[in-house]
């Protein structure tokens, strides 16, 4: 079974900039970010650090099982570990192999390199090299693959800019719609709310069309007002 592992420090692997979509954009469609929507309490975690905890060995076992069966033949599950101890990654890989019940777990190590976060990039590279040299029975490493991005902040500019513009546009429209109904909301809260809703919708495979931002914001404002009315009536 093939999997891919991306290691790095928080400076580099910052969830606010790098989400599942961004990873696919950087490393290609072949790599698909591994999520665990079935694991109670872990479904909202951005990366896979939950698999490094020694407290829940069954979770890693189940993850190995899920990786084996949940992916198309031409897709490779991508695990992202932030600020991980190599010893934890080693035990995680051993358990994943057991969970997947496969003879050999073929691991492609991925690294990100960015000129703007040089120290973090070097640490990522060093962690990948340390892992390759670790001898784990039943786990084979392929040569690490490093992808260099000119400027991490500008990473996938189109993708991030588009996403941020969308959030800004819908949150402004939401504030307008609420104002028309006699309620005000701070820009920061509106932005966070929209960010959360859009993330949930993306997970469910839904998108708000560009020309429907206004309708969406209006419906959302109506629903929020209804919730508020019900809350006040109950109270």
């Amino acid at each position: 079974m093939k999997i891919a592992v991306l290691l790095g420090s928080f400076d580099l692997l910052n969830p606010s900039m790098l989400d599942a979509e961004a990873f696919q954009h950087i490393f290609g469609q072949e790599y698909q970010f591994f999520k665990m929507p079935w694991a109670t309490g872990k479904r909202d975690q951005t990366y896979n650090n939950a698999l490094l905890s020694n407290e829940d060995s069954r979770l890693i076992n189940a993850a190995g099982y899920a990786m084996k069966y949940d992916f198309a033949d031409d897709k490779i599950p991508l695990l992202v570990f932030v600020d991980a101890q190599i010893s934890d990654v080693v035990s995680c890989l051993k358990m994943l192999r057991k969970g997947a019940n496969c003879e050999t777990l073929n691991v492609t190590l991925l690294s990100l390199r960015s000129n703007t976060t040089y120290a973090a990039s070097e640490a990522t590279k060093a962690a990948a090299q340390e892992l390759v040299t670790a001898s784990i029975q039943g786990v084979a490493f392929t040569a690490p693959m490093t992808v260099t991005v000119e400027d991490l902040a500008a990473l996938d500019v189109q993708h991030l800019v588009r996403k941020n513009l969308k959030i800004r546009d819908i949150s402004t429209k939401l504030r307008d719609a609420l104002e028309r109904r006699g309620m005000t909301m701070s820009p920061d809260i509106a932005r966070k709310k929209i960010m959360r809703i859009l993330r949930r919708m993306t997970e469910e495979g839904m998108l708000v069309a560009k020309d429907k931002h206004e309708i969406f914001a209006d419906e959302l404002a109506a629903a929020m007002m209804q919730d508020l009315t019900q809350f006040l009536e109950k109270g």
Binding site: W38, T40, R58, A62, Y65, A66, Y69, D70
Partner: peptide
């Protein structure tokens, strides 16, 4: 349904 199976494995 597969998610339910993974959850069963998770629960042991």
């Amino acid at each position: 349904q597969f998610n339910c199976l993974y959850d069963l494995v998770h629960k042991g």
